[in-house]
Design a protein around this nucleic acid. Structure first.
Lengths: 101, 101
DNA sequence: TTGGTCAATCGTATATTTGCGATAAGAGAT
DNA sequence: ATCTCTTATCGCAAATATACGATTGACCAA
């Protein structure tokens, strides 16, 4: 049943795209990702210095980006180094490219 | 002051991108846009038939897409024909392309 | 003017998001 | 064990988002 598979893919792609888009739907999160793109990686504390937000708020945005799969954290005690999750980044990129045609 | 202009552009692009992303951050709105892409245009009623949602809910999603500038409505009494706003679509496309690198 | 059709808007309820300060948790160093 | 540094989580308040049914408004036809 090729048709069903296509429908499922369509549905899954739609929801995956919406999930990524939702994660990108806040200026601070876009800025965090731009920062990570430019620096390749950075620590939470660096971001707290850059944005006029409380540490807990920055941490929450990082959590959402992590839940969406766009970033990943690596333990570098006593800090945590955040980087873009290249694998999912590529998936998101291709979903958006495909979407915008 | 080139530097200031760059900062402003950076800030504006970040916010514009977040606004577009936010509008795309719901499966129904992605699906509506995919539908419009495929059909080029369609009426609200068609969408109400396609999605398992109340008419008022679909209308609300259309309003958000319109506010984000991604679609536009044309009066075709007694119906309204919705199409993708090609101009802003291109802007969104290039913002995302630029963002994902 | 009246009626019919279609879509937007109004209330309303519920859920989610965003932000903060305060607190807890994890991992060395002393 | 205790202290320090860094980050996550908790608890809360305010704002926003999502969905619905009911109502209103716009337009054309009879």
């Amino acid at each position: 049943m090729k048709r069903n598979l296509e429908i499922i893919d369509y549905k899954e792609n739609t929801e995956a795209l919406a999930r990524f888009a939702k994660a990108l739907g806040h200026p601070t999160r876009i800025a965090i990702l731009k920062h990570l793109e430019a620096q390749s990686c950075c620590f939470t504390g660096d971001l707290v210095d850059v944005f006029p937000l409380a540490q807990s708020t920055v941490s929450q945005h990082l959590k959402e980006l992590k839940n969406a799969g766009l970033i990943q954290g690596e333990l570098k005690p006593p800090k945590i180094k955040y980087c873009i999750n290249q694998e999912n980044w590529k998936i998101a990129k291709s979903l958006f490219e495909n979407f915008f045609g």
